[in-house]
Design a protein around this nucleic acid. Sequence first.
DNA 1: CATGAATGAGAGTTCATTCAT
DNA 2: CATGAATGAACTCTCATTCAT
Lengths: 241, 241, 241, 241
Amino acid sequence: MAADSGSAGDYGTSDMQRNADESIADFASHLRALEETLSPAQEAPPRIPRQARSREKRDEILKAAARLFVRDGYAQTTSDTIAAEAGVSVGTFYNYFRNKRQALLTLVIERLDGIFSNIRLAQMDFSDGHPREVIRRAIGAMLERGNSGLRRAWLEVMAQEPELQPYQQMLRQYVLVRIEDALRKAEARGETWPELDISATALAIFTLLDTISLRTDTGIDDERLADALTDMVYRSTFPQG
Amino acid sequence: MAADSGSAGDYGTSDMQRNADESIADFASHLRALEETLSPAQEAPPRIPRQARSREKRDEILKAAARLFVRDGYAQTTSDTIAAEAGVSVGTFYNYFRNKRQALLTLVIERLDGIFSNIRLAQMDFSDGHPREVIRRAIGAMLERGNSGLRRAWLEVMAQEPELQPYQQMLRQYVLVRIEDALRKAEARGETWPELDISATALAIFTLLDTISLRTDTGIDDERLADALTDMVYRSTFPQG
Amino acid sequence: MAADSGSAGDYGTSDMQRNADESIADFASHLRALEETLSPAQEAPPRIPRQARSREKRDEILKAAARLFVRDGYAQTTSDTIAAEAGVSVGTFYNYFRNKRQALLTLVIERLDGIFSNIRLAQMDFSDGHPREVIRRAIGAMLERGNSGLRRAWLEVMAQEPELQPYQQMLRQYVLVRIEDALRKAEARGETWPELDISATALAIFTLLDTISLRTDTGIDDERLADALTDMVYRSTFPQG
Amino acid sequence: MAADSGSAGDYGTSDMQRNADESIADFASHLRALEETLSPAQEAPPRIPRQARSREKRDEILKAAARLFVRDGYAQTTSDTIAAEAGVSVGTFYNYFRNKRQALLTLVIERLDGIFSNIRLAQMDFSDGHPREVIRRAIGAMLERGNSGLRRAWLEVMAQEPELQPYQQMLRQYVLVRIEDALRKAEARGETWPELDISATALAIFTLLDTISLRTDTGIDDERLADALTDMVYRSTFPQG
DNA sequence: CATGAATGAGAGTTCATTCAT
DNA sequence: CATGAATGAACTCTCATTCAT
């Protein structure tokens, strides 16, 4: 299915490489943007650990929390349980995190790229003439990262705490706007279907991939899935696919 | 369950219809069994009342519960609130429903087709030669049903109670298989893209539409959205769209 | 010590009576004013009891709370303890009161006259020519009411919850202003010491009596104490006492 | 501490003085015993350190504690906060003081005369013929000392721990008895109002001044307040003021 | 002695569910 | 059947105090 190579020569690889590097840098900066977006929701933790052992314990607690949030969901996970799972007392949990919500927020911020793998979509740039590959790469990257469980927990908190919803909106807008941009540029170059409804298509693409990345077991191999999704996005945007 | 019949056949559609209806009925009966399992009959289980006045009261309660589940989510809705919203006492609520969960299950069972509007996708039949219209109609139907709020509540309970998940799987499989079937037939007729990965594509279509129908406000008009989605599904399946 | 009688006639008694009646009416209106002052701090209780038994239970809980607040102080009294003392469960306590603070506020409002016996001072009217008796009566009334324990609890909450302090200030101002008024009128009639510092004296009188009424056991009989206080207030305000 | 001397009886004053000083010393030693009783020596009790650096640190902590007790009250001040305010760790706090209460007790003992400024009242001696000035001076001295905040904290602990109440009684009695003494002597010289109820009047004077010295902001200038209080005490005791 | 992480009893509060009236 | 008061387990979070480093 994948057809890459290209018309021009041998330095294709180094080109790819350069693109990948840039892409990683891009990705990092996108992440930082998202982090900025989220941090206002994050109050200072009660204790900033100074000793090395302390950092480890904090990480233990975070890992324990992550396990439970993923397994049982946010609401079903109690502070007592997290503490027990981490092998510490409740007091200790509250030494490191102001409250349960902050623990989740911390997790989300620290694992942004795993959780919001959809920002990969924000990086798509169709200007180099190989849109199919661009799409394929973004989708592949999205599917391989695995922290969708935490995103489910994040969505759960948001449902309960309306103050957080703006943040979700912002994250979403961030990606959405970038997809629209990429599409609009391709449209300007006359590459897309005529009369393509850019906003609606961007929304559809975003929704599709955002949700698919939350999948647990689809019964379908990730590679095949990525290929099918790529075709879908590609064909629905660029004619003569 | 599957009844395919053949390419021509004027009763194809009504067949499809019957099948979908049957399937919903099946699903409902499973859910009812589940209800029994999850809320084991103790002493006198609340039954559907015969007298008109009682039925009305029960319906009032259900409507109130639905409003609140949709507005605030399942966990955030308390039995007290439901009773208050319905203008009855908590006791009365518990006279009609064994517990909060049963009230939601009842709602889900009674409004199955509104909630699981994705069942409409199971009815797509591309054999009449106008696949784009078929897709458009299914999508239009999905988007216009309004009970996505209750489905969100249903998903919320499921997250908490793993025993329910098989039922979600069941419904999902039902629709998926039907989409695959339709695609396979179209493929047999040589209408689809060559080498189309049927299962993966069906999954993608299902996921996309299933999620989109949960939307609250996308900022995009439903008609436009339906058109864009139709294009997406159509172009990614049938070439030369 | 008391010397009343008067220049004129036999209907002195009925005069007294009328004054007492007026005084009670006055007192009630003062109380209402204080209640108005406090009520903004009071949120609606979670459940307004309708059944008679319910009112009784509410009263039981209030009495139990009062006992414990007086005996152990506000902070040392837990909701569990109150419930236990009242012979109910915690849940029941929270059915009647939104929280511990509201229970105290309710008590305070319902027993305003016992707790803020100092409003008696707000009623003093020296215009009838018998200031000593007026003072004596106010002080006597202050000392005989007994809920100073609850006022101590009230002061305790206020120390902890700055939002309530305005209310204390208002109660205080209410009485203070009225004492000043009475003094100022007497001054206008030339009855007071020349160059009397009205505000400071009012403050001193208020403070003295306010605090004395918080006494538990002074070792001195209430009548004697009232007489001594009367002398003190009278002599420090009106010359040639 | 106040040196008045006067026309009559040259050692009278110094006697009073000695008594007051002794009494304070007594009180202090009682408090120290109390400290022992309340915080029973376990293993190595924190003692007053000898080395200069340690003394300074201890003083820093005490000052920090004082600031916070005054500003926020005893209960609202946590050991963590005290440590932070003093720029040390909690551990260090507990190296110098057995517990929070002991820190307050220590403060009280070390600042007895500032806190219990009402002891000044015990030193009043009307025998030199200028009672008004004597009163004025005592009141002035009371009002100018600023540690009433700590006394409020002390009263707070006492409310929680009944074992401490005898000590409060002790100090109170000491001052009361001395005021009564002074009044009785003046009465013997025929200077007071006839039939003055000495005990009750002493109690009233004590209560008034004791409480007024706890004031925070009365809205009235201290000098004016002192003058008004002086008038009040003077006129209610000595006729023809 | 200094540090600060760890502890855990305990406090306030909520809410699904029961049951006497 | 309707009512709504009663229940208590469960949950989140605080803070005085200890103790290993």
